[in-house]
Design a protein around this nucleic acid. Structure first.
Lengths: 215, 215
DNA sequence: TAACTAACGTACCAGTTCGTACATTCAAAG
DNA sequence: CTTTGAATGTACGAACTGGTACGTTAGTTA
């Protein structure tokens, strides 16, 4: 009668790294989708296989947890950006390629985009405290700077453009498409993330940027 | 000795319209700066010359107040957009002018931008319930549509562009500049809203859009 | 195997926050 | 002048929520 109970796969084994990571994963989703005030510590705990006590044990509090989430999200996306190799491409193709990488990244990491929005809603008071993020980000712009200089030397780019401005144009397009998809969809009945339109928007971004740079 | 006390200008006179409007003004600022969850009903009440009781009396609750705020903010900005007269401009100048109007509007109404962000954080569940907003917004795109057609007929614009896409490009740039100014400033040490750079960004937007449309 | 510490769980508290019951006052209508 | 209802103020409650005190267990080391 009494069958042998198969040991559940999620029996609690002591594993600090795993517990920490699991809390971070769930917290990322919660903060991204509900904002800082909207996120509930109890809810985050309930969605993990651990308890609220552990959140305070590992992170100290709601605010510190939020910062850890933000730091990891930025690190991940910038690390991927640095993996781009544009040295072997002609300037025009290189810029287009960089824009496409940003495009792909934003699309693949909507939680990151949402977190950026959440952080701006709080006037970036947390980002300002994480100095290392500045280095990460500026290196991404340096890459763009290099390609622009090459293109200007070759005479195919306007000489009055600033790398940070171009970076901003690229980010604007990619950010808006992901961040405002809900209101845009509701007001104009167009799903900006519809897979069938993906290639169209990706090409459009490239045209937009290269069109601006072209002499 | 005892001077005649000048009657304070804010003695409480019964004025429903004024009380309602004052609540809306303060609530707009609160919701824009703290988000839906972050905004406090008590705080909104404290910043008006009335009490929390009145918020419930006039609006019913926090959520309904938020919706009223959202509705008014959208109505205001769209009304101003419709005031643009591009019929008498050549297509190229017309498009640039439309972009500039959006640029100016976003800059003048940061609270609106923040509210759009807040609403997207909630997946636009409130905007979806205000059907009249759809009409308001689509009329703005119709205007753009007309200028594009004229330019295409004149042979100065590409014929494979969509009005809604162009609208999205314009909005992206203007939105990002205002919405993400805090993280951008913290990470790249550049104030996107610095008045001395305003003309530069305004011209850049025009160049960007016309560069994309040019054959 | 006994001691020790990191990892974990339970129960609870104190402050906050949305919302409301109830009393009151102003101003217009008759 | 009286009536009447809209407009307003006060005080409070119930639920939520971040945070913590305290006890327990697992795994490691001597």
């Amino acid at each position: 009668m009494a069958e042998k109970i198969v040991e559940a796969p999620d029996v609690r084994r002591r594993d600090a790294a795993r517990t920490r990571a699991e809390i971070l994963d769930v917290a990322t989703d919660e903060f991204a989708n509900r904002g800082f005030s909207g996120a509930r510590v109890d809810e985050i705990a309930a969605r993990t296989r651990t308890t609220k006590r552990m959140i305070y044990y590992y992170f100290g509090g709601k605010e510190q947890l939020y910062r850890a989430v933000l730091e990891r999200a930025y690190s991940e996306i910038r690390a991927a950006e640095r993996a781009v190799d544009v040295e072997h491409l002609d300037p025009m193709t290189g810029v287009r390629r960089l824009a496409e990488v940003t495009f792909d990244h934003h699309e693949a990491h909507p939680a990151f985009i949402q977190l950026v929005g959440v952080e701006n809603a709080q006037h970036a008071r947390h980002v300002a405290h994480v100095a290392q993020l500045v280095d990460l980000n500026s290196s991404a712009v340096d890459l763009l700077q290099g390609v622009l200089h090459r293109g200007q030397a070759d005479g195919v780019f306007r000489t009055d453009v600033d790398a940070l401005d171009v970076h901003m144009m690229i980010s604007s397009f990619c950010f808006f498409r992901v961040a405002n998809r809900h209101t845009f969809g509701a007001l104009f009945d167009r799903d900006l993330l519809d897979p069938s339109r993906r290639a169209h928007y990706r090409a459009m971004l490239g045209d937009l940027i290269t069109g601006y740079l072209r002499i």
